[in-house]
Amino acid sequence: MLKVENVSKYYGTLKAVDNLSFEVNDGEIFGLLGLNGAGKTTTFRMIMCLIDDYTGNITLDGKKIDYTVTDKIGFLTEERSLLTKMTVIEQVKFYAVLKGMKEEEIEKKLDYWLDRFGVSEYKNKKIKELSKGNQQKIQFICAIIHEPKLLILDEPFSGLDPINVELFKSIILEFKEKGTSIIFSSHRMEHVELFCEKLVVLVKGKSVLSGYLRDIKEEYKKKNVIVCGNIDKKKIESLDGVINVLKEKDEYIIKIKDNSYVPKLFKEISKYDNITKFVVEDASLNEIFIEKVGEAYEK
């Protein structure tokens, strides 16, 4: 289990991370979200032992993070962190040996993973000769080959086509099943929503939203009502409790203040004779994120 307790980090007078606390249990996927410059990379760097001059505590399985602990962590950086002049086998071996693996063991596991990702033929190719997507696969293999206890994934689907996104998702879920703690960071909220049970949203280094995703959604009272049919948009917008009405293709998305306004809205919508759909949905994480981050910036 990863435990981040009251961690703060200053760059000069700039507070990059402000009293941040969270826990990632074994077999749990945790979302670390925030705009660019919110403090995510600094948090990853502190967990990875790249920064040691911070206050607070970071422990993995109760042990303070140091170079013996980082061997148990896999890190997929947002940017390509591959040495492009190396071949695939040299690159994976290089990072895996630094993680404490034996060369013979690496070769066996590498063959399995190359096959799994469908890139076996690139084993002896130089990294710079690979496409962006294949480089991402190699980077991912480098992060998981030593079967880490904690896996940090910063924008893991960058440069991947939909089929490979699915492949990555299934492998991430396999690691979750095996009990690996996973920290997931992405600007694609639909991916976060799909994976993460728990999350924290950072704004200027400070947590503005944290907890289990289901609790966050429950606490966020605003709902979306999806209606299919011809309605009078202006009339619906003027109703009490309706925030706004958006038209997307042949559907209307009616945003309401909370569940209590649903019966009244249903009654109004029923007046129209061509209605084929009336569904009440929780707000998306994307909406929650935009609102919470926006509020924090206004403050």
Binding site: T77, R80, S81, L98
Partner: peptide, 17 residues
């Protein structure tokens, strides 16, 4: 510079001091 520009440095320094 090669290790820095490719950000390989972050992976290396997370494993060795």
């Amino acid at each position: 510079n090669e290790e820095k520009t490719t950000r390989g440095m972050e992976i290396i320094i997370s494993n060795v001091s």
